[in-house]
Design a protein around this nucleic acid. Structure first.
Length: 218
DNA sequence: GCGACAG
DNA sequence: ATCTTGTCGC
């Protein structure tokens, strides 16, 4: 029930999209969040996937897990989840403690079918999830203000699909959108809280560094 | 037909 | 995502 053709993936994604929940109400502020990321080898299909669990209140890293594997699905814009989510679920499963929320390196509902990687992962893990991407995928927006916390709505044909959020003063903004079971405003609040002193949320930044190091020596 | 296109 | 050198700035 994992490997699928591109046509099947689009069909499957259509069904998953109907399961995405974007509440208008606030959810309890998560105590712990897990950041996830994948590194790819050049001339092979080897990948290393890392999950980092962080205590959002203290900023302490509680635990981390890394799994090695092989990329089975190609990169197709709009279908990134089929390439990455299986591995992300594996790394997540290796954590001893379940996080209160997931921070994904990619889009949430800021996606053509409102079903980015963060939506897939949130639904399949049964946990709240937020998509936090470094670059735009779809949608238009104005340039947010220059300071940490400044933001601008990300719109697709007038529909709100996320926010462009400045996570530190004078850095390129991040593209934040709900993945599952968390609203727009709170998604920005949580991402901001996770960005202690860098552009990227701490857990994602650590996961990126750890997965790259793991891939290099394996 | 042409350009855009998360990671 | 990854391949890449030097270079600018704190």
């Amino acid at each position: 029930m994992e490997p699928v053709s591109i046509a099947q993936a689009e069909e499957l994604q259509q069904r998953l999209a109907s399961q995405v929940e974007v509440p208008r109400a606030q959810i309890p502020m998560p105590r712990t969040v897990a950041g996830l990321d994948i590194s790819y080898a050049v001339g092979s299909d080897r990948i290393a996937t890392t999950a980092v669990l962080l205590n959002l209140e203290t900023g302490a890293i509680l635990e981390e897990s890394t799994v090695h594997g092989v990329a089975t699905f190609p990169y197709v814009p709009g279908l990134l989840a089929f390439r990455e989510v299986p591995a992300l679920l594996e790394a997540l499963g290796q954590l001893r403690n379940q996080p209160d929320l997931l921070l994904v390196d990619g889009q949430g509902i800021a996606h053509p079918r409102r079903c980015g990687s963060a939506c897939h992962l949130g639904i399949r893990a049964g946990l709240p999830a937020i998509g936090c991407a470094k670059t735009r995928f779809i949608g238009e927006h104005r340039e947010p203000g220059p300071h940490r916390g400044d933001q601008a709505p990300l719109l697709d044909n007038g529909e709100l699909i996320g926010h462009v959020l400045r996570t530190q003063d004078n850095v390129k903004p991040m593209y934040v959108s709900p993945g599952h079971r968390v609203g727009f405003e709170q998604s920005c609040d949580i991402v901001l809280a996770a960005c202690s002193s860098f552009r990227l949320p701490d857990p994602i930044r650590h996961a990126d560094r750890l997965s790259r190091a793991a891939l290099a020596l394996y």
